[in-house]
């Protein structure tokens, strides 16, 4: 369980995350949604100790993330940020193998390489293992980063817009993999998503932020409703039920 209590982050006078409290339950996919600048990524960065906060506390399984040793936390919680720029020239396999660093400190065992190969297979990256990152398309690179994060094999996986740059097929593929990780391996996943329909189809719970404040948190069906979404996005989104999924039609 990840607990966020009264967390605030200010840049100068402006609070980009303003007194937010929420709970992420174990064994579920929780999606963070909200308009641009709502503070979703900032919150995710604070949950994963990448960013210091000005106030409040964040615990993972009861331990404060800033107090627990960083290398211990790295075996428990992994984060993939929205923008990743690596100046080192790495192949896909090199990159994914870095996911094992918390366990192997760079000296990978046979067991570690098994994890690497499995993560590569999950992301269907086998044809590209020896390619350098700068020789890949945006989508392939994104999948390589996701593979590295999965390779870290943590209970908690935080992903900031993992569907960035991805076509429909690979978006669905990644969401499917995440769903499987939750069902089969009891992982806990927190996602920042922009497409409310992906959030609707794959998450157990949705947390909505707006202007740094938490506006709504609840089961997916409670959030994907025209009146709730209007409150979040200032946009009237008709919701249709199509084959058991609640789909928002926001295109026009």
């Amino acid at each position: 369980m990840i607990e966020v209590r009264n967390v605030t982050k200010r840049y100068g006078e402006k609070a980009v995350v303003d007194n937010v409290s929420l709970t992420v339950r174990k064994g579920e996919i929780t999606s963070l949604i909200g308009p641009n600048g709502a503070g979703k990524s900032t919150l995710l960065s604070m949950m994963s100790r990448l960013l210091k906060r000005d106030d409040g506390e964040i615990t993972v399984d009861g331990q404060e993330v800033l107090a627990v040793k960083s290398d211990e936390l790295a075996k428990k919680l992994a984060i993939l940020r929205q923008e990743n720029h690596i100046s080192v020239r790495l192949t896909v396999r090199d990159l994914v193998s870095f996911g094992r660093f918390p366990y192997s400190r760079g000296r990978l065992t046979r067991e570690d390489w098994k994890h690497v190969d499995r993560a590569i297979a999950y992301m269907e990256l086998e044809p590209y293992t020896q390619r350098f990152l700068d020789q890949l398309s945006g989508g392939q690179r994104q999948r390589a980063y996701v593979a590295m994060t999965l390779c870290q094999d943590t209970d908690y996986i935080l992903l900031d817009e993992p569907l960035n740059n991805l076509d429909m097929k690979h978006s669905v593929q990644i969401m499917g993999v995440l769903r499987r990780l939750v069902e089969e391996l009891d992982k806990t996943i927190v996602l920042v998503l922009h497409d409310i329909n992906f959030a609707s189809c794959y998450s157990d719970r949705i947390i909505a932020l707006k202007d740094g404040k938490l506006v709504r948190a609840g089961l997916t069906d409670e959030i994907i409703r025209t009146d709730t979404l209007a409150e979040i996005y200032d946009l009237t989104i008709p919701i249709e039920e199509i084959r058991g999924n609640r789909i928002g039609i926001y295109f026009r």
Partner: peptide, 20 residues
């Protein structure tokens, strides 16, 4: 042991457990 990871940037290094 941390140098290769440090080269990947601050965020990645922290995520992989380096006291950056």
């Amino acid at each position: 042991p941390y140098l290769d990871v440090l080269a990947l940037g601050r965020e990645t290094a922290i995520n992989l457990g380096v006291e950056h």
